[in-house]
Amino acid sequence: MDATLSGHLQELRRGTVVVASLITLRTPGYGYSLLETLSQAGFEVEANTLYPLLRRLEAQGLLTSEWNTDEARPRKFYRTTEQGDALAGTLRDEWSRIDTAIGDLSVKSGSEE
């Protein structure tokens, strides 16, 4: 049963990391800092998924990056582009639409019981 549950949860959560990253990176951040922020916010994301994901989003033009060498450890900072921000907005609208739709469904089926 646990395997079934975790499988379905994974299906449901797929894609949410993209939205969360695009929203978080409106303030520039680097790989590990984003990982920390997301896990504190309750997103279960693995480092080996997140780091390649950031590069993919950058290749799609949703993020830009810049090396910061001011500190002892050079870090690659990512920032959400305008395009990325617009996409995040669309995804959020879709998310709330689905949430409303599911809410409507459960209200309907609840009243029939």
Binding site: G31, Y32, A47, W67
Partner: peptide, 17 residues
């Protein structure tokens, strides 16, 4: 080159934490 630097930085960050 880019992934090399970034991956090392990320690993070091995690180790430090």
């Amino acid at each position: 080159g880019d992934i090399d630097r970034e991956l090392r930085a990320s690993i070091e960050d995690a180790v430090d934490a």
